[in-house]
Amino acid sequence: MIIYGASGHAKVIIDIIESTSHHAIDMILDDNPEIHSIMGKPVKHSMPEKGDDFSFVIAVGNNVVRKEIVDRNNFQYSEALVHNKAIVNRNVVIGEGSVVMAGAVINPSSKVGSHAIINTNAIIDHDVKVADFCHISPGAVITGNVKIAEGTQIGAGASILPGVNIGKWCTIGAGSVILKDIPDYAVVVGNPGRIIKYNKSEE
């Protein structure tokens, strides 16, 4: 497996991989020539000649950048990577390239899309739908029957109440409490959550 990106987020992905015996790290790849190692592992700056022989995981925390990398490359992506200290119900579906950190909980009948991040100690309750390229930050609580559209960031410690729909490419601030549906591109903060502005687009 190739880890694409050598940022702090890559350190957590390395930890996920090392927590299980299902995968091995073949290479860490980064575009920045000034980064030579991460967690004692060498970082390369050019694709192997037979790159299509490897599966990839994108180790970039920014949702927009992660999508841009996926859109411009024809990589074969890994199955979801799940830390051995995460709790994921057996009927949960998680898309390719997604990562689930230590302490996260994903309860029955939930679905997580591709290239999503379920971060440390995040809780996703039953029947939740998390779309592609989302990031559920550490300690966030997503209660039952919530739907979160593509590219949305749920901040650390935020809480989303049952049945709420959150639009695409939204930003939900850390610690916010969301009581009602949120439209596409909204930036929301506070308890109860209020819209303070809109992201221009996913670009």
Rank of each mutant, 00 (worst) to 15 (best):
I118Q: 01
K41M: 12
G113D: 04
K147P: 00
G40W: 01
N74H: 06
Y198L: 00
M47W: 07
L179Q: 11
G97V: 05
V12F: 03
A104E: 01
I16T: 11
P183R: 11
F56A: 05
S46G: 02
I142L: 06
G5Y: 11
P48K: 13
I196H: 03
H22D: 12
I25G: 01
N62G: 01
L81V: 04
V99Q: 04
G193N: 07
D184I: 12
S201F: 03
N89Y: 14
V164D: 12
L81A: 03
P183D: 12
V146M: 14
I148K: 10
V112S: 01
S114H: 03
I69T: 08
I160V: 15
V100N: 11
N32L: 01
G61Q: 11
H23V: 01
S19I: 09
N199H: 10
I154Y: 04
V65Y: 05
A10I: 12
I69P: 04
W169L: 06
G144T: 06
N84R: 13
E96K: 13
I196K: 09
D15C: 05
T20L: 08
V57N: 08
I182V: 15
V177L: 08
N63G: 03
G61M: 12
F133I: 03
H83K: 08
A122Y: 11
I172A: 11
I28N: 01
I28G: 00
G155M: 07
V93E: 10
S176E: 04
H83S: 14
A156R: 00
K197V: 09
A102P: 06
A86E: 12
I136D: 04
I123L: 15
G113P: 05
M1R: 09
S46I: 08
M101V: 06
S7L: 02
Q76V: 12
N74F: 01
D26Y: 01
G151Y: 05
V187I: 15
H22Y: 07
L81K: 00
I13P: 10
V189E: 12
V43M: 09
A149W: 09
I136A: 06
I58A: 04
P108I: 02
G193A: 08
G173S: 14
G157S: 07
N191I: 09
I195A: 04
D132L: 06
L29Y: 08
I87C: 15
K147I: 09
D125H: 13
G163V: 11
D31Q: 13
N191Y: 06
A116Q: 00
T120E: 04
G103T: 02
P192A: 11
I166C: 10
V60E: 15
R194F: 04
N119L: 07
K168C: 08
V141H: 12
N74I: 00
S7Q: 02
I172E: 11
N199V: 08
V128K: 04
P42D: 07
T152F: 01
V60M: 15
V43R: 08
I118V: 10
G51H: 15
P33S: 13
V100D: 11
S98M: 02
R90E: 15
E203M: 14
I2F: 07
I94K: 04
H9A: 01
H36R: 14
C170P: 03
N91V: 07
G139E: 05
I13C: 03
I38W: 10
K168N: 09
N74M: 02
T152H: 02
V60L: 15
